[in-house]
Design a protein around this nucleic acid. Structure first.
Lengths: 341, 341
DNA sequence: CTGAAAGCGCTTACAG
DNA sequence: CTGAAAGCGCTTACAG
């Protein structure tokens, strides 16, 4: 091994000299081009090893007018759902030369445009984005029109014509509700989530649908909206518990809300899973660690990330292809928070 | 707004022409150089706006022989500790033009060298790394010697002379143990973590130290090692519970283990927080959602990431400065898993 | 205060 | 099968 720290970076020109060929030939070898004879290739590879050559992908990208970085814009990496989605993106990129630039928006639209701007300056070959809640469809369409392969995840842009992958929120609401109905519950609350949030709108629609199919009346008093924080979840729960005819079960807008609901129940002397049933929506691993282990509707965060990565990769290869809409089918994970039969 | 999608990318040459100046002048304006007169600057900025110019940072980086990307190598983004650390890194980079390339190793050393290689090819201005468990100090030192500003996080490299930021594991073990002793416990178990893991070695050392200071004998039977999975935690717990003289409290190697221990207790008919005390080590937000809410020793994941980012930034500015060693002081967060007084 | 020119490390038609 | 030359979009001494 050559242990001398190189003063100047080793380039393909150095390799060319050492191997007695031209830089073009070295470049061709690097690209595993078939035209190069085995003998020449060996000489070049030998020189690469001897000089400790390191490929400069960003120089190549500049020349080629591409980038092998994928921008990933999410709300908050500490949210287990996005952490899993991020892991899925990495998985989907495995085996390629792409690397991900991770940025967070904190669900702030100004910050979102700042980080997007920064991604563009650094150069990205594609973008996967969970749009901040106030995002206008034009923002996304302008990105696509600018030539950046883009895939939107989870949060459906009102009308934007772009690749998309996300869950069937309505079905998720229906599945959660149906499960509780089958368990014999008649008064079922839907707690948390902001009224204007499209995913909540869909989940609630599914909830109402399942109620209706079971011949169960929808009671608006049982459906309370709030920013999905722990504290809000607990106060939402107290509201419905104080009703003249309180519910016997509740669906949390997401797993986090559902877990908070279980804490809230105990403060009221109610044992979750025994005296009151709870189901969440998300299916992240934190649901499994809760006590009692949370019954939840899995939205497949990891799979979402993986598919999103595949979609951008495809669009990078074929920029003109028609837009795809991947809707992932949620499924129920029965654990202990609705009681054990 | 100019809505025509540019066929060719707008460059500083286009701006120069439009503003009637030279490319050098445009570059100087972009860099907010003082030498440029206000009038010229205005003309250039006007042209930038009109033509929709987008700065190509990677071309600039090529010319300058730098990169404004920071590589972040962690084990697993789904582990809340690393998610928080990642958020901390982003925080520490805020206000700079740096972006992070996130990669995971899955704690596999071969994968670690592959992703490192890929980071180098893409070009990084600095590296923050949580080294995979089998990492040799030479690996880290070679990176530093190669000129890449590096900061190691959390897992202390045996002897490597590099910047480092991580927790005081020994103190964390002492704090957890002392808390239980003060609560009146005499038989305290330390459960989970692999025997060869340096952080476990330190935490156990702190545990023994606190025991000794309290005049409490260390019983090896109460200290069981295992890979920190939920299943192992539960079987470790059963082992100590089956002892002739079982413990009345346990420290989990980390929060995840501690939460699993609470599940294990209930399977044995023991109510955590009432009949048995549990304390964790980590202090991630999942500890708060557990039931009962987990008493834990906070290791400051977010702060770790933030400081690591600052250290690389400093080293990028001053490559020759002496190495820093930042040891974060853990602190106890009392919640409900050891009972309420 | 501003411009001409070289160069960062690659790739890629185009010749031969 | 291999090489000479131009160029990707910037920056930076060096002149003036």
């Amino acid at each position: 091994m050559n242990e001398i720290a190189p003063l100047r970076r080793v380039t393909i020109i150095d390799i060319a000299k050492a191997a007695g060929v031209s830089p073009s030939t070295v470049s061709l070898v690097l690209q595993k081009n078939e035209r190069i004879s085995a003998e020449t290739r060996n000489r070049v590879e030998e020189a690469i090893r001897k000089l400790g050559y390191k490929y400069n992908r960003s120089a190549a990208n500049l020349r080629r007018q591409t980038s092998q970085a994928i921008g990933l814009i999410i709300n908050d990496i500490c949210n287990p759902f996005f952490a899993e989605m991020t892991a899925g993106v990495q998985k989907g990129l495995e085996g390629t030369e792409f690397l991900v630039f991770l940025v967070e928006t904190g669900d702030e639209i100004e910050r979102q445009s700042r980080v997007y701007q920064s991604l563009e300056e650094h150069g990205i070959g594609g973008l996967i984005i969970f749009p901040a809640s106030q995002t206008k469809p034009e923002f996304l369409e302008r990105i696509a029109a600018g030539g950046t392969p883009i895939c939107v995840a989870i949060r459906r842009p009102p009308d934007a014509d772009v690749d998309y992958v996300g869950p069937d929120n309505r079905l998720a609401g229906r599945i959660a509700t149906r499960h509780l109905i089958e368990l014999g519950h008649r008064r079922i609350a839907f707690l948390g989530g902001e009224a204007k949030s499209p995913s909540r709108i869909d989940r609630v629609a599914g909830y109402q649908e399942a109620l209706q199919r079971a011949g169960n009346a929808f009671d608006p008093a049982l459906c309370v909206e709030s920013r999905p924080t722990r504290a809000n979840a607990i106060s939402d729960l107290n509201k419905v518990l104080d009703l003249p005819e309180p519910p016997t079960a509740a669906i949390g807008y997401n797993d986090n809300v559902a877990i908070a609901l279980m804490h809230g129940l105990r403060r009221r002397g109610l044992e979750p899973g025994r005296q009151f049933a709870i189901v969440g929506i998300d299916g992240t691993s934190e649901a499994e660690l809760a006590y009692p282990a949370l019954t939840t509707v899995a939205l497949h965060a990891h799979e979402t990330g993986r598919r999103a990565a595949e979609l951008v990769l495809e669009r990078i290869k074929a920029p003109g292809k028609t837009h795809e809409n991947v809707i992932l089918r949620p499924n129920l994970i029965v654990r202990a928070s609705c009681g054990t039969r």
